[in-house]
């Protein structure tokens, strides 16, 4: 069995601060990281490998610097890593990204033994785009079933049984067969840290294979900006609406004023 993990390198957005006066992002010194929930996807793949044997393959599409993210995945214990990088991939929306990832998965499957079963694992969503679309679109492109929002998974032969948080007040237990794609939540596990040996191996024994448009035999109408059906038309910093009143006086006075205002606003 092969387990594919799709990861994304993102700027460590939690550490990004905003310049209060200009409202702009302060990017200096912000490191690039593996998208946080993708680490849980890697952990799950490694646990599957340990429990029942599988080859774990990490994939990422991005600029050459995304190799760092794949090296980190290798250090955690991933067997092979592929970086899908090409200037022509730039500007891809989720449609173009899922097309490109699917090409790589198909290529790797074609080069391995016939009819090998496989599972694709993605993190639910990336912290920069927050779309959660690449996973399901990749499943559609590969024409395989999906279970999203997975918080627990079990194998039963060729079948997987997954607990999904698709509903707020319920756990939906779902069953499907391999090959399949799942997207996972942080709750599924706690990702391991790379060991020292793992880090050494990641740089000395393992390699990150680069794949470009030509190697993937990609249809240029389906990749990058050209293959994207959504276009960013405008980008702006959100504006605050309404006026801001700071109340003053003693605690009692301030509280009285507040209730008065809330009455005027017809809330109380």
């Amino acid at each position: 069995m092969k387990v594919f993990v799709c990861i994304k390198q993102v700027p460590g957005v939690a550490e990004v601060k905003i310049d209060v006066t200009t409202g702009k992002l302060i990017r200096e010194g912000v490191p690039s990281i593996i998208n946080p929930v993708d680490k849980h996807a890697i952990e799950l793949a490694l646990q599957i490998k340990e429990e029942q044997g599988a080859e774990v393959i990490a994939l990422s599409m991005g600029p050459p610097q995304a190799e760092e993210a794949l090296r980190e995945a290798l250090a955690m214990g991933v067997d092979k890593a592929y970086l899908l990088t090409d200037k022509e991939f730039a500007g891809a929306d989720t449609l173009a990204t899922s097309y490109t990832l699917a090409l790589a998965i198909r290529k790797i499957l074609q080069e391995s033994e016939k009819n090998e079963k496989y599972l694709v694992i993605c993190g639910l969503q990336a912290i920069d785009g927050d779309t959660a679309q690449v996973g399901p679109e990749l499943a559609e492109e590969l024409n395989i079933p999906q279970i999203t929002y997975v918080q627990k998974i079990e194998f039963k032969g060729d079948k997987i049984i997954a607990e999904s948080a698709l509903r707020q007040d319920e756990v939906m237990v779902m069953e499907t067969r391999l090959p399949a794609l799942i997207t996972v939540l942080k709750e599924i596990n706690i990702p391991r840290f790379p060991t020292l040996i793992g880090i050494v191996d990641a740089y000395e024994k393992k390699e990150v294979v680069y794949l470009d448009t030509r190697q993937l035999n990609a249809d240029k109408r389906k990749i990058g900006l050209t293959g994207s059906q959504t276009q960013v038309w405008k980008i702006f910093v959100p504006q605050q609406k309404g006026e801001h009143i700071k109340l003053s006086g003693s605690v009692k006075e301030m509280v009285k004023q507040l209730c008065q205002y809330l009455k005027e606003d017809k809330i109380l």
């Binding site: 990004v16 992002l25 059906q229 959504t230 276009q231 960013v232 038309w233 980008i235 959100p238």
Partner: peptide
């Protein structure tokens, strides 16, 4: 942090 307006 940023709002984006997107068209299809």
């Amino acid at each position: 942090r940023i709002m984006a307006t997107i068209r299809t």
